[in-house]
C-alpha cells in the first residue's frame, strides 16, 4: 500500500499538523518508503495467531474506587500557556 498527496494531507489534518504543499510532497515520499519497509510483514503467516496485548502475562491491577489525589487546580494549570481562574483558556469554540 502507498499513500498519495491527498491522503497525506488528510492524515496531516487528522493528526492536527499543518503542512504546506511542499512539505506534504516531501512527506509522501518518506511515508511511502516507511510503508514499503513494513510491507515485509506480508510474508509472515499470521493465521490463527493472537495479537499481543501485553508482553507480561498479568491481569490488570485494580484499586479501590476512591479519591486519592487532587485539590490543587492551580498546580494543574501552572504550565498552561494561557489560563485564568484555574481554567485552561482556548480560542472561542462556539459561536
Amino acid at each position: 500500500m502507498s499513500v498519495d498527496l491527498s491522503t497525506v494531507k488528510r492524515v496531516a489534518r487528522l493528526a492536527r499538523i499543518k503542512v504546506d504543499d511542499e512539505q506534504a510532497e516531501k512527506m509522501t515520499g518518506e511515508l511511502n518508503a516507511i510503508l514499503g519497509f513494513v510491507e515485509q510483514l506480508d510474508e509472515v503467516n499470521i493465521e490463527g495467531v493472537e495479537p499481543m496485548t501485553s508482553v507480561v502475562e498479568t491481569s490488570m491491577k485494580k484499586r479501590a474506587d476512591g479519591q486519592t489525589d487532587g485539590g490543587y487546580a492551580d498546580k494543574v494549570v501552572s504550565n498552561a500557556p494561557v489560563s485564568e481562574d484555574n481554567f485552561f483558556m482556548v480560542p472561542k469554540v462556539v459561536e
Partner: peptide
C-alpha cells in the same frame, strides 16, 4: 492548551495545527 508551546490561529483547530 495544557503545557508548553502555543502558536495562535484563527480558531481552535488552526491553533492546534
Amino acid at each position: 492548551v495544557r503545557y508548553g508551546l502555543r502558536v495562535p490561529g484563527n480558531d481552535i483547530v488552526e491553533m492546534y495545527e
